[in-house]
Design a protein around this nucleic acid. Structure first.
Length: 718
DNA sequence: ACGGTTTCGACC
DNA sequence: TGGTCGAAA
């Protein structure tokens, strides 16, 4: 809950734009004969006709609802056109909707700060544009107000019926109006224009709300759909909110809203007004309490962020009921598919937006066979993200086993000790987050980076990481540490127990419908010996680490060759452990390559964090200082000096302001970077990095052009 | 068996 | 501070 730090005299002009049944419109644009027909988009139609994820307004009129299955929809509306979501790699592929969403964003971001709120929603802060318009244009000239703007719904203008048109016209012209109303009127005109542009350029209709804050704008955008806009003048806020069911408010549609109803008897926003701020804080804490008190009064200080791109990418799939995955092989197969999709999306983000993701996270849902009442959660796990499909696949699989080990281990193995320990996976997803923009004009770096990936997926890579130079290491990420459970030092992980804890009885043998041949080793350490526990003491707290040693079995060798992998990994364990220490030592001796950490999509994070830990342990008293500094400067580069927003839509549209923004935003003090580090950089990018350090002098001469993806994508099958 | 995502606050 | 979880849309 954002703390609603705001004045009730908020004079911002905020718009929320919401695409009408967006997926349907995307399909209708592809297939114009569907226009005007009752249409729904379904995914997976084999089971009861598939699930509806978008329904056209024609179909809604016939009673079709989003919670329906395709078959039901056909019953209530036999004429309905069901369009399937594209399928790729056995799962729904939302790519077309994502890029359509980006098209829309690139249009809507023209008139003010723009925040991509979801695939089909944006917020705009139009305050400045509205003020400018107000200052420059006479408001009393009807000819200057577009038809579309005049179609706005303006809340509080009595009777939205008969001569509503007349009163709206009067409201727009009202020279006697409140200053804030005039601003909203300007905002409404701007939004009307933008909506028209979306319609003309992208062929999509959308609805919008225009108000003094995000909350009210969002509320308003849903009030008159489709293809209409609604204005919320300040004077209408009270009457708007008072009768509104509490659950309709954003953020109150779930448990908090239910608690308000059940525990406080609050059913409408008006009911909330009877509670003091203190009372609400008693019940829901200081932040949420204040937030509730404010939103009841239509107050929300929530700012529109400047962000046109998503903060993370994810790919997931559910395996409901009978389709639950029950063998490692099937999990591995699906994980590989998901990782492939993710990897592709990461590459296009890199190419189009020059952004690099730093964290890979796996989520899963599972249930235990023979153990109906245990409903524990499968823990999610994350690790530094290394680019390259095979690496992502390898890391994802390791994350899965790290989670599985906890999942099966945590729930009374002891009591059910002699029973078989079966699990079934009902959902898998992997996502990439901590995405940061790399500066513009660094094409050689991108290219270098890309070549690393390419190299590793095409040639047999040496596992002798000792012979590799530091820069190379940083990219190849041959060995990273995966820290687990550092938060739970009290867990029974003391010495003798360690191996028991992570071992488990043989799992199960029956796959979805095939053989009983899939054999899972007793111990996951055996199956994935690259995970071995490493104990570290830090700040007096013993922590368990799993060392995720790189197998070298990258490049798809991992894919369907479990046995090979097992053997290979088995032999790699010790090797991997040693290598991480050696690697750290060589880093220490050479100086700390903070720049590399930043560049390296993978090695960076894991190195800076884990090696820093290790360093603290190894050299507590002595040389930690300088390394620490370097680490800090690195994170500062990553966190503090980034451009304020990521400004490129994913459409391949380029915004010329990107370069300027990045250039200025990225200037920083070169003292923060150890000069020795520079010399360790791969020769091909040294010059460019030096240029970064002196932003004024840095020429943006790097030739742009060749597509990373073009170059890289063919690796999939060749 | 309301799917696939994405974001955000709380908590440790 | 960052990883993880749960809520919410």
């Amino acid at each position: 809950m954002p703390v609603a730090r705001a004045e009730s005299s908020d004079s911002r002009v905020i718009a929320h734009i919401d695409m009408d049944c967006f997926y349907v419109q995307v399909e209708q644009r592809k297939q114009p004969t569907l226009r005007g027909q009752p249409t729904a988009v379904v995914q997976y139609n084999s089971w009861k006709g598939g699930g509806l994820i978008a329904v056209s307004y024609e179909a809604r009129r016939s009673g079709v609802k989003r919670s329906m299955r395709g078959a039901e929809a056909k019953q209530v509306c036999p004429e309905i056109q069901l369009v399937q979501v594209p399928v790729a790699r056995g799962k729904a592929d939302l790519g077309v909707y994502r890029s359509a969403g980006s098209e829309v964003v690139s249009i809507l971001s023209r008139k003010g700060r723009c925040e991509r709120a979801s695939i089909d929603e944006v917020y705009l802060d139009l305050t400045e544009s509205a003020e400018t318009m107000l200052a420059e244009l006479p408001l009393d000239r009807l000819e200057l107000i577009s038809e579309e703007a005049l179609k706005s719904h303006v809340l509080g203008l009595d009777v939205d019926g008969d001569n509503a048109g007349e009163s709206v016209r009067k409201w727009f012209l009202g020279s006697d109006a409140d200053h804030r109303d005039k601003l909203l009127a300007c905002g409404a005109r701007i939004v009307a224009e933008l909506r028209l542009q979306v319609l003309e350029e992208a062929e999509f209709t959308c609805s919008a709300g225009i108000a003094h804050n995000k909350m009210l704008a969002k509320l308003a955008s849903g009030m008159n759909k489709p293809a209409q806009q609604t204005v919320v003048p300040f004077s209408s806020v009270k009457k708007l909110l008072e009768p509104l069911p509490i659950k309709k408010m954003k953020q109150l549609g779930g448990k908090l809203g239910t608690s308000l109803q059940v525990d406080l008897g609050v059913n409408t926003v008006g009911d909330l007004l009877h509670f003091s701020e203190e009372k609400l804080q008693e019940h829901y804490g200081i932040n949420t309490g204040t937030w509730l008190w404010n939103i009841a009064r239509g107050i929300s200080g929530d700012e529109v962020e400047s962000r046109l791109l998503p903060k993370s990418h994810g790919a997931g799939k559910t395996f409901p009921g009978p389709r639950a995955l029950k063998t490692s092989a099937s999990v591995e197969k699906w994980l590989n598919e998901l990782c492939e999709e993710l990897s592709e999306r990461l590459l296009s983000d890199l190419e189009q937006n020059k952004r690099i993701a730093h964290t890979l996270t796996l989520h899963a849902n599972a249930y235990k066979l023979n153990d109906s009442e245990s409903v524990n959660k499968f823990p999610s796990k994350s690790c530094p993200l290394r680019y390259g499909t095979a690496k992502i696949q390898e890391d994802a699989l390791n994350l899965f086993y790290a989670g599985l080990r906890e999942y099966v281990g945590s729930n009374n193995i002891k009591t059910k000790g002699n029973q078989r320990h079966g699990w079934a996976i009902t959902g898998l997803s992997i996502s990439a987050s901590k995405i940061v923009a790399i500066p513009s004009g660094t094409h050689s770096i991108t290219k270098y980076f890309h070549n690393q990936v390419q190299t590793h997926t095409s040639e047999k890579q040496s596992n002798d990481i000792f012979t590799q130079d530091a820069a190379h290491l940083s990219y190849s990420g041959n060995g990273s540490y995966l820290r687990l459970h550092s938060m739970c030092p009290q867990i029974n992980t003391c010495e003798e127990d360690t191996r028991n804890k992570y071992s488990m009885p043989s799992l199960n043998q029956d796959e979805d419908q095939n053989e009983g041949a899939s054999f899972i080793p007793k111990s996951l350490d055996e199956q994935h010996p690259s995970f071995s526990t490493v104990r570290q003491k830090q700040d007096g707290v013993t922590q368990d680490f799993l060392s995720l040693s790189s197998s070298g079995a990258e490049n798809g060798l991992v894919l369907n060759q479990t046995e090979t992998k097992i053997d290979f990994l088995g032999e790699e364990t010790d090797h991997g452990l040693k290598s991480k220490e050696q690697k750290w030592k060589s880093y220490k001796e050479k100086g700390t390559p903070s720049i590399l950490r930043f560049f390296g999509s993978h090695g960076s994070c894991s190195f800076s964090k884990e090696d820093n830990n290790k360093m603290l342990e190894d050299n507590k008293a002595s040389s930690s200082a300088d390394s620490q500094v370097t680490v800090n400067s690195c994170s500062e580069v990553v966190k503090g000096k980034l451009p304020p927003g990521n400004l490129l839509p994913q459409t391949g549209t380029t915004l010329s302001s990107q370069d300027e923004l990045s250039r200025t935003a990225w200037s920083y003090n070169s003292d923060e970077i150890d000069p020795v580090t520079l010399n360790e950089l791969p020769i091909e990018i040294q010059a460019e990095v030096r240029a970064w350090l002196r932003p004024q002098k840095r020429a943006n001469t790097m030739k742009k052009g060749s597509s990373i993806v073009d170059y890289f994508l063919p690796t999939k099958n060749s």
